[in-house]
């Protein structure tokens, strides 16, 4: 299996002196679904950003999607990395006054010729078809023409997933994608992630501080605690007691 992300001896401290983590080593293979867990403030978001070059690290080495860098990637490297990644954040980040279809098409921005993703009216025909397919995949085909602010939180997050998938990414990064959803919608969103990334052979890395989400939708768990990798093993070999240890101070 080819590695999608490799990090060696990675460290990060913020300019104010705050040390978030040090000597982090990890290896994420293609098509894996990895949950990055840890309590609030453990450094999950910071680690994700360092791994994909959106934040400079303060030590160590990263190889992501074939681009090898220390501290931060070059502009050209970052551009190549971004083209192969889809993102989903805690807040869906949809443009509220635009249609669902336009929001999905905006996933094409940042790709060559991507400016035609501004609005569905100027998008290429086959992009529109891809967008409709992506909406069908997240079971929201009927909402294509609706305004984004007319959706429920769970629906909006599924549109955000469709927007990420239309990039045909190799890697999907999701930072607390279900944290602001009610339990039912949260599980629904996690199920969509888990199924679609498997079907489409996409590597999934998501963060969560929900034990159920960590156990039910991942192949592997990487736990962060006190600035170190607390454990890193297949989900099948993780017990609830292990998880309790992660979240207990």
């Amino acid at each position: 299996m080819t590695a999608i992300i490799r990090a060696h001896d990675l460290a990060k401290s913020y300019a104010n002196g705050k040390v978030v983590f040090s000597s982090i080593g990890l290896n994420i293979a293609s098509r894996e679904r990895v949950a990055l867990i840890g309590s609030n403030g453990a450094g999950k978001s910071t680690l994700l950003k360092c791994l994909i070059g959106l934040l400079p690290s303060s030590g160590g080495e990263v190889v992501t999607l074939g681009e090898s860098f220390r501290s931060a990637p070059s502009v050209a490297q970052l551009r190549r990395i971004r083209r192969q990644i889809g993102f989903v954040f805690q807040h869906h980040g949809l443009v509220s006054r635009q249609s669902v279809l336009t929001n999905v098409l905006q996933g094409k921005l940042g790709l060559p010729g991507g400016w035609r993703g501004w609005h569905h009216s100027i998008a290429k025909q086959h992009w529109r078809e891809e967008a409709m397919q992506a909406l069908a995949d997240v079971r929201l085909l009927g909402k294509a023409g609706a305004r984004a602010d007319a959706l429920s939180g769970g629906q909006a997050q599924r549109v955000a997933i469709a927007r990420a998938l239309i990039r045909r990414p190799k890697l999907l990064i999701a930072d607390e994608p279900a944290a602001s959803l009610d339990p039912a919608a949260g599980h629904d969103v996690m199920r969509v992630f888990s199924e679609l990334t498997q079907e489409q052979a996409i590597t999934l890395v998501y963060t969560t501080h929900d034990m159920e989400h960590a156990l039910d939708y991942s192949d592997r768990l990487i736990a962060l605690k006190a600035g170190k990798v607390f454990f890193d093993r297949p989900t099948a070999h993780v017990t609830r007691a292990d998880l309790k240890d992660v979240f207990d101070a």
Partner: peptide, 12 residues
């Protein structure tokens, strides 16, 4: 928030 989401994927 939408702006951040689009900047993250490298939109100009």
């Amino acid at each position: 928030r939408p702006q951040e989401a689009l900047f993250a994927i490298g939109a100009s």
